[in-house]
Each structure stands twice: as C-alpha cells, then as structure tokens.
Design a protein around this nucleic acid. Structure first.
Lengths: 155, 155
DNA sequence: AAACAACATTTGTATATACAAATATATAAT
DNA sequence: ATTATATATTTGTATATACAAATGTTGTTT
C-alpha cells in the first residue's frame, strides 16, 4: 500500500511533501514493529541502541556525550537511558579520572550477554523488514537519506 | 555527512541494518527541524497533521478513527490531540447523529485560517529540506519506502 | 426483550521525551 | 589567586506517547 492510499486526499501531493510524509509515516510503521519485537525482552529501542554503541567500543568506555552524538535523543534523556541500563545491570557509570566533569559508561558482562541474545533477533528482523528491496536498492536508499541530511540548514 | 560517520564503528555494517538505522536517524533529524519551525506557531507536528487531514475533508467532518488511520499515533492519543485543537479553537467535536458511538471532528474557520498561515511555511520547509534531491530521486525514494512497508509482516 | 459480543471512543496511568535551569569541574582572563 | 567563561552532565518539570481498562452504544443471539 503506497503512501497516497493512506493520506487519501483528492488533490495531488507534490513529491517533496510526499517524501517527507512518507519518511515520517514509514518511521512510525517500523517503530511499531521494532517495539513489538523488543517488548519481549523488556528493553526500548533507545536503550538497545545505547548498548549497541557501547558494544562497538570494544571494551573501551564511552563518555555520555559520545553516546549522545550518535543518537537522536537529547543529552538529559541519554542520562536517564543510562540510568535504566544501570538498573538492569547492563552498564556501569564512573566519573572520568582525567576530567571529573565527564562520565565513563561501560557495558557489563551481563549487558554483553543480553546483546548476544537480542542482536541476532534484531538482525533477523532487519533482514525481514527490508526483504522487499535488493541490496542495490538499499544502497541507493542510504545515499538518498545521506544526501537529504547533507545540508547547511540555517533557519 | 553519511550515516556511517555518525555510527563510527570499525566493523562494516550490513546494508540492511544500515538502511534501518539511517531511516530512524533521518527521521530524528527531520523532526528536530520541523519542531523548531512549528514551535513559533505553538503547535506540534501531530496536531498540525490532524488539521491537514481535516482540511483535506473539504468541509466534511471526519470520525476519530478516520483521522487515526491516516496517522501513526494510537487511538487514545488521537483523542487528546483533538482535545488540544479544540482548546485552541481550531476544531469542533460533536457526537455523530447516525451512530452515537462515533464522533465527528470538523475544522473551524479559525483552524482554516491558521492552516493558511502555517501551511506555506511548512511547504517552503519541505522544499528546502529536500532540495538536495531531484524530483526523480524523490519519486524513487517514495517507491522504496512504499515497497518497504508493503509486506505481509506476521511476527 | 435480555444477555452477550462487537465497536468507537475516552480515561487512567506509567514511561518517554523536550526544554530550561542547576550543578560541578575545568580553562581562560584580569 | 580570583573571577569569569566554557564544558559535561544532571535535575526539575511539562508535554507526549503507549498500553490497559473503562464507558457508552450498536448489533446479534437465544
């Protein structure tokens, strides 16, 4: 079902407007599915993303600001995401010795084990959700999205 | 800046995973900009979307479920979105005479006037945000997104 | 017609997010 | 050295969203 079938307006939608609506709509669609998948494992997509970022550090801790840069959430909420992960025993937080303003977040053994269980599930999910498109299509989609964001946007 | 520059992981990300991350990331990027734009007019994107849907009705009222179908939000929150719009005087809500379970939402004169001011601003915004891509690119992007959602997704 | 199921919406509530202000530390300027 | 400024994170709070249960109405079964 294409995006126009949802919007159901008589007048033709300009392609630029349609693309934005389509992006936001598809995001919502994907999020619904992802949340459904992750709910079984009692974790939110944002918490999962933090764990993935920490795992990518290969043992090295990450500062809060480093985590924040790689996500689309605000600083203050990144703090609280980490709070949740600490509660679950998946990460630790210590004050950075070289700069006591900073904070070092590290994934724990338990966090790594959790990721090892959930990551394959998410991988399958991601493969399934994109199965209608070829790898070439997806390469092109990635290029489009990168281009979209690649703007000196001053307003 | 492409998506891999943000994620900054040493190991190569599979294109299917990258596409999903890119979509979610781009969504966040766009939302930040849209909210910045709409904040001046004291309205949220979701409220704005409801107004757009109602405006597309050409005077005819819309049931709550009709609005909900065309959006990515839950029923219960659609009720509250309409609450907000009523508070602002942009819509009315009356019980449907033919089926008293249903409810009829209509855009008011004030709501229409508001849309007439804000819609052109959003149009400009949407043109600007997509200006790095040609219309052909965007057609293709829309096709990809439609295909992505076009699945018998049973899990 | 009474009882029950289905439908459309609303309410309650817990969690998530956005925005502003506060805290604590480090760096720079006088 | 003291004051001011910048940096990194946290806290407070209002708004938004998700999920489950409740309400009121209609349609269906016995």
């Amino acid at each position: 079902m294409n995006i126009e079938s949802f919007i159901k307006t008589e007048n033709k939608i300009p392609v630029r407007k349609k693309a934005i609506i389509n992006l936001l709509f598809t995001h919502g669609w994907i999020m619904d599915k992802i949340n459904l998948e992750l709910k079984n494992h009692d974790i939110s997509i944002q918490q999962f993303n933090v764990l993935r970022i920490l795992n990518g550090q290969k043992g090295k801790p990450a500062n809060l600001s480093t985590i924040q840069e790689r996500m689309v959430t605000k600083m203050s909420n990144t703090t609280r995401l980490v709070d949740k992960l600490i509660q679950k025993g998946y990460t630790t937080r210590t004050i950075c010795p070289s700069n006591r303003r900073k904070v070092e977040i590290t994934i724990t053994q338990k966090g790594t084990e959790f990721l090892n269980i959930v990551s394959p599930i998410m991988d399958d999910f991601e493969n399934k959700i994109t199965s209608n498109l070829t790898e070439e299509d997806l390469d092109q989609l990635n290029i489009f999205l990168d281009q979209l964001r690649n703007q000196n946007f001053n307003s």
